[in-house]
């Protein structure tokens, strides 16, 4: 059984936001409009956090893409009263939209704030409604949604490899964010395969976990900036 993980090279991230756009397109994340977004209703399963260092004019900008960290010890899971938020065998924090009743407890427990609530039924500004992904279910009002590591792509590639009677190759599965990243800052793969790119990067001495001291044991490793 694979253990899915990701490595994020902060040296490579230039904050372009392609990952955010790709994620919206791939996962049928509804757009809420400028007004609702200003009220904190935007749903970005992946976001690029910006932090400024130093005082003006001597400032430096740092970027950090943050998506669901797919924790092994996820605070969102035990608090869900209906098992909508639960752990899969391959180490993903799955969210079953149909089982969610919208207590929003998971989002409060999540230290990374990567869970998003559907405040209204989904809608898209034209012509975005023409590009919905048939592999991803839509979420109705009142449920929680979050980054899935593009579980539809993981399943699709796994089934295809099984049908072809071959093992999955490293790099065969790419979540939309990793695929869209022009600087190749996001690397996805199987952490249980010691030869995979993500395994090698995760062991880097530059590697660290986000809010490591909380003990959530994330599957995402950040490679700190050297410059």
């Amino acid at each position: 059984m694979p253990k899915w993980g990701m490595a994020v090279d902060l040296d490579r991230c230039n904050g372009c936001g392609a990952c955010v756009t790709a994620c919206h397109a791939e996962n049928n994340i509804s757009t809420v409009g400028a007004e609702e977004a200003a009220r904190g209703r935007a749903k970005h399963w992946i976001r690029v956090e910006r932090y400024w260092e130093g005082d003006f004019p001597d400032v430096r900008l740092k970027f950090r893409p943050v998506m669901c960290q797919q924790c092994d010890n996820a605070p969102c899971e035990p608090v869900c009263p209906t098992y909508a938020s639960h752990h899969t065998a391959d180490g993903l924090n799955a969210q079953v939209y149909n089982r969610c009743i919208g207590t929003r407890y998971c989002a409060n427990a999540c230290p990374y704030n990567v869970r998003f609530f559907d405040f209204f039924n989904p809608s898209w500004e034209k012509p975005l409604h023409l590009q919905l992904n048939p592999d991803v279910s839509l979420r109705e009002v009142g449920v929680m949604e979050k980054c899935t590591f593009c579980v539809q792509r993981i399943k699709g590639a796994t089934i295809q490899a099984k049908a072809d009677g071959r093992p999955l190759a490293d790099g065969e599965i790419q979540p939309a964010c990793a695929q869209a990243c022009p600087a190749k800052a996001l690397v996805f793969g199987d952490l249980d395969d010691p030869g995979s790119a993500v395994s090698r990067l995760s062991k880097s001495s530059r590697g660290s976990k986000l809010l490591d001291d909380l003990g959530t044991r994330p599957s995402v490793t950040y490679l700190e900036r050297q410059s």
Binding site: P78, V79, C80, P81, Y83, I101, G102, E140, V141
Partner: peptide, 24 residues
């Protein structure tokens, strides 16, 4: 968010054998 499904919080015997999460 979906109050019409509030009964999923109750431990009732369902034919799908799904119980609430007693850890919550």
């Amino acid at each position: 968010g979906r109050p019409w499904l509030a009964f999923w919080l109750f431990p009732y015997p369902s034919e799908r054998m799904i119980w609430p999460n007693f850890r919550s």
